[in-house]
Amino acid sequence: MCTGKCSRFIAVALYPLAALSIICNIVLFFPGGEVKYAEQGHITEEVKYLGGIIGGGVLVLLPALYIHLTGSQGCCGNRCGMFLSILFAAIGVVGALYSFIVAVLALQNGPLCKYILWTTPFKNSDKSYLSDSSMWGQCFEPKDMVQFHIGLFGTLLATSCLQLVLCAAQMINGLFGCLCGTCTEKGPL
């Protein structure tokens, strides 16, 4: 496969992943589908880090656009373009890592919910709330907050893993394109 075609494939795969990351992070601001929790400041701390918007979103979307342009029409533009795609893919790796770390921290600490007061009841507990669903009843408000939290941050975690793999693959692809040159279609002699 030509390095340009591979670049285009990677970029096209990164677009929906970046959009999904942004959407998940935005939805996390509205637990239970209500605005009142955001207005009152009752949002899980890791949501405010914007891992899905900045990391998995913007810092992956910008490299995806450049990588797509590099691989336009099935062939890479030139060796310099492929070298720059390595640098842009590295930015994507940084963004995906940021999103990954924020999602891991959020899943480890648990959601902010109303237990007796507004707190993160699972943050320093001996047992993991992820493996013991009987603990989920400690969150009274918002309704189904634990499932909401796990579902969206789990999606961000999976999305950032895929973004990491794709951006790392583009770094390798860009290296091949930079060292081996562009692919050219051979016409009849």
Rank of each mutant, 00 (worst) to 15 (best):
I101L: 10
H68P: 00
I150Q: 07
Y66F: 13
G151E: 10
D132V: 07
Y129K: 07
I150P: 02
I172T: 02
G52S: 05
A89W: 11
L107K: 01
G51E: 10
S131F: 12
S133R: 14
D144T: 11
G52I: 02
L162C: 13
E141T: 11
A90G: 14
E141H: 10
P16M: 09
L117R: 03
L107D: 03
R8E: 13
F122A: 00
G81H: 12
W118L: 04
V12R: 11
S85P: 13
L87V: 15
G81Y: 09
H149E: 08
Y115C: 02
I91H: 06
M82L: 14
A13H: 01
L107C: 01
S125Q: 08
K143H: 12
F30V: 14
A158N: 07
P142Y: 08
P111K: 00
Y129V: 08
P188D: 14
C2G: 06
G92M: 05
I53S: 06
V146S: 11
L105Y: 08
P63E: 04
Y15D: 02
C80T: 15
I172W: 11
A168P: 00
I101F: 09
G137I: 13
K143R: 15
V47P: 01
C139T: 07
M145W: 08
C2E: 10
I43L: 08
I91A: 15
Y15V: 05
G33P: 15
F122C: 08
M171W: 09
Q73H: 12
C76A: 14
T184E: 15
C2M: 06
V60G: 06
G57D: 09
F30N: 14
P63Y: 03
P31I: 08
S85D: 13
T70E: 11
Q73N: 06
I23H: 13
Q170G: 00
G71P: 02
I53F: 10
N109D: 08
C180W: 12
T184V: 15
V58Q: 02
S128N: 12
S72P: 01
V93W: 08
A96M: 09
C75I: 13
F9R: 04
N78Y: 05
Q108L: 00
V12W: 06
F29S: 14
Q40H: 07
L28Q: 15
C139W: 03
L164T: 04
F30W: 15
H68F: 06
M135E: 11
Q147T: 06
P188G: 07
F140G: 06
V94Q: 12
G41R: 12
K36L: 13
V93R: 04
L65M: 10
I53D: 01
L112G: 01
C161Q: 09
F153W: 12
N173Q: 07
E185W: 06
K48T: 07
G32C: 14
V60L: 08
T184Y: 12
A158M: 08
V104D: 05
L175S: 04
A64Q: 04
Q138E: 14
C139G: 12
H42G: 00
I67M: 09
A103W: 04
F153V: 03
L97I: 12
S7P: 01
S85Y: 06
Y66A: 02
